[in-house]
Simulated scan of single mutants.
Amino acid sequence: MLKEEDWSILLKMEEKYIEELCMQILKFKPNLVITEKGLSDLASHNLSKQGVSAIKRLRNTDNNRIAKAYSAVIVNRLDELQESNVGTGAGLFEVKKIKDEFFAFIVDYKDPKA
Protein backbone atom coordinates (compact mmCIF):
# COMPACT_ATOMS: atom_id res chain seq x y z
CA MET A 1 0.00 0.00 0.00
CA LEU A 2 1.30 3.45 -0.93
CA LYS A 3 2.12 5.94 1.76
CA GLU A 4 1.03 9.56 1.62
CA GLU A 5 4.54 10.68 0.67
CA ASP A 6 4.54 8.17 -2.20
CA TRP A 7 1.32 9.70 -3.51
CA SER A 8 2.82 13.18 -3.40
CA ILE A 9 5.85 11.95 -5.36
CA LEU A 10 3.59 10.35 -7.98
CA LEU A 11 1.51 13.52 -8.19
CA LYS A 12 4.62 15.66 -8.74
CA MET A 13 5.78 13.26 -11.47
CA GLU A 14 2.41 13.49 -13.20
CA GLU A 15 2.39 17.29 -12.97
CA LYS A 16 5.89 17.48 -14.46
CA TYR A 17 4.96 15.10 -17.30
CA ILE A 18 1.81 17.08 -18.20
CA GLU A 19 3.73 20.35 -18.04
CA GLU A 20 6.33 18.94 -20.46
CA LEU A 21 3.58 17.84 -22.85
CA CYS A 22 2.04 21.31 -22.72
CA MET A 23 5.43 22.89 -23.40
CA GLN A 24 5.76 20.72 -26.52
CA ILE A 25 2.48 22.19 -27.77
CA LEU A 26 3.18 25.76 -26.66
CA LYS A 27 6.48 26.00 -28.53
CA PHE A 28 4.39 26.27 -31.73
CA LYS A 29 2.46 29.25 -30.29
CA PRO A 30 -1.10 28.03 -30.98
CA ASN A 31 -4.23 29.98 -30.08
CA LEU A 32 -6.45 26.90 -30.05
CA VAL A 33 -5.83 23.20 -29.41
CA ILE A 34 -8.41 20.65 -30.54
CA THR A 35 -8.45 17.03 -29.44
CA GLU A 36 -10.74 14.07 -30.07
CA LYS A 37 -9.80 12.61 -26.69
CA GLY A 38 -9.96 14.04 -23.21
CA LEU A 39 -7.76 16.73 -21.77
CA SER A 40 -6.76 16.79 -18.12
CA ASP A 41 -7.70 19.74 -15.97
CA LEU A 42 -4.03 20.39 -15.32
CA ALA A 43 -3.21 20.46 -19.05
CA SER A 44 -6.19 22.74 -19.69
CA HIS A 45 -4.99 25.03 -16.89
CA ASN A 46 -1.40 25.13 -18.23
CA LEU A 47 -2.64 25.96 -21.73
CA SER A 48 -5.08 28.62 -20.57
CA LYS A 49 -2.36 30.33 -18.49
CA GLN A 50 -0.58 30.91 -21.79
CA GLY A 51 -3.73 32.19 -23.52
CA VAL A 52 -4.48 28.99 -25.43
CA SER A 53 -8.06 27.74 -25.65
CA ALA A 54 -8.75 24.02 -25.88
CA ILE A 55 -11.64 22.00 -27.25
CA LYS A 56 -11.75 18.39 -26.12
CA ARG A 57 -13.73 15.34 -27.21
CA LEU A 58 -14.49 16.69 -30.68
CA ARG A 59 -16.02 14.18 -33.07
CA ASN A 60 -13.65 12.71 -35.64
CA THR A 61 -15.68 14.08 -38.57
CA ASP A 62 -15.72 17.60 -37.13
CA ASN A 63 -12.01 17.40 -36.38
CA ASN A 64 -11.30 16.39 -40.00
CA ARG A 65 -13.41 19.27 -41.33
CA ILE A 66 -11.63 21.83 -39.16
CA ALA A 67 -8.22 20.44 -40.11
CA LYS A 68 -9.12 20.69 -43.79
CA ALA A 69 -10.41 24.26 -43.45
CA TYR A 70 -7.26 25.34 -41.60
CA SER A 71 -4.86 23.35 -43.78
CA ALA A 72 -3.79 21.59 -40.59
CA VAL A 73 -2.56 18.04 -40.15
CA ILE A 74 -3.99 15.88 -37.38
CA VAL A 75 -1.27 14.22 -35.31
CA ASN A 76 -1.70 11.27 -33.00
CA ARG A 77 1.32 11.86 -30.77
CA LEU A 78 3.04 15.06 -29.70
CA ASP A 79 6.42 13.84 -30.89
CA GLU A 80 4.92 13.89 -34.43
CA LEU A 81 3.93 17.57 -34.13
CA GLN A 82 5.75 19.94 -36.48
CA GLU A 83 5.21 23.58 -37.30
CA SER A 84 3.89 22.61 -40.75
CA ASN A 85 1.07 20.65 -39.02
CA VAL A 86 -0.29 23.72 -37.28
CA GLY A 87 -3.25 25.24 -39.09
CA THR A 88 -3.59 28.97 -39.61
CA GLY A 89 -6.14 31.23 -41.18
CA ALA A 90 -9.03 31.28 -38.73
CA GLY A 91 -10.21 34.62 -37.53
CA LEU A 92 -12.36 34.40 -34.43
CA PHE A 93 -12.90 31.56 -31.97
CA GLU A 94 -15.78 32.05 -29.59
CA VAL A 95 -18.01 30.03 -27.31
CA LYS A 96 -21.71 30.90 -27.15
CA LYS A 97 -24.36 29.59 -24.81
CA ILE A 98 -27.58 28.78 -26.63
CA LYS A 99 -30.30 27.78 -24.16
CA ASP A 100 -28.58 25.25 -21.88
CA GLU A 101 -25.84 24.18 -24.29
CA PHE A 102 -22.43 25.67 -25.10
CA PHE A 103 -21.29 25.80 -28.72
CA ALA A 104 -17.85 26.65 -30.10
CA PHE A 105 -17.62 28.70 -33.28
CA ILE A 106 -14.61 29.30 -35.49
CA VAL A 107 -15.39 32.03 -38.00
CA ASP A 108 -13.82 34.49 -40.46
CA TYR A 109 -11.48 32.11 -42.28
CA LYS A 110 -8.86 33.94 -44.31
CA ASP A 111 -8.66 31.28 -47.04
CA PRO A 112 -11.24 28.55 -46.37
CA LYS A 113 -10.56 25.13 -47.86
CA ALA A 114 -13.74 23.37 -46.71
Rank of each mutant, 00 (worst) to 15 (best):
L2S: 09
K3S: 14
E5H: 07
D6L: 06
D6P: 07
W7S: 10
S8D: 10
I9V: 12
L11G: 11
M13G: 07
M13E: 15
M13L: 14
K16A: 09
Y17N: 10
E19H: 07
M23W: 04
M23D: 15
Q24S: 14
Q24I: 04
Q24L: 12
Q24A: 05
I25R: 04
I25V: 11
L26E: 00
K29W: 04
K29G: 10
I34M: 15
I34L: 13
K37W: 03
K37N: 05
K37G: 12
K37F: 06
G38N: 04
G38P: 01
L39D: 00
D41V: 10
D41S: 11
D41T: 12
L42Q: 13
L42N: 00
L42F: 12
L42V: 00
A43D: 02
S44P: 02
S44Q: 12
S44K: 14
S44Y: 06
H45P: 00
H45S: 03
Q50N: 10
Q50T: 00
V52Q: 08
S53H: 11
I55F: 04
R57V: 05
L58R: 01
R59T: 08
R59I: 06
D62H: 12
D62Y: 10
N63G: 03
N63F: 09
N63Y: 07
R65A: 14
R65E: 13
A67C: 01
K68A: 12
K68Y: 04
A69D: 12
A69T: 09
A69F: 05
A69K: 08
A69S: 12
S71W: 04
S71K: 09
A72R: 00
A72C: 11
V73D: 10
V73R: 15
V73M: 14
N76R: 15
E80A: 03
E80S: 02
Q82L: 08
E83T: 10
E83L: 07
E83G: 05
E83M: 09
S84H: 09
S84W: 06
V86D: 00
V86H: 01
V86A: 00
V86L: 01
V86Y: 01
G87L: 02
T88L: 14
G89H: 10
G89Q: 07
A90V: 14
A90P: 12
L92P: 11
F93W: 01
F93I: 06
E94Y: 11
E94V: 09
V95R: 10
V95W: 12
V95D: 03
V95C: 05
I98H: 00
I98L: 00
K99H: 05
D100Y: 08
F102K: 08
F102M: 07
F102D: 04
A104P: 00
A104M: 03
A104G: 01
F105L: 14
F105R: 03
F105A: 08
F105W: 11
I106Y: 05
I106P: 01
I106K: 03
I106D: 00
I106S: 01
I106H: 00
I106T: 04
D108C: 13
D108T: 09
Y109V: 13
Y109T: 03
K110M: 06
D111A: 15
D111C: 08
D111N: 13
P112L: 09
A114G: 14
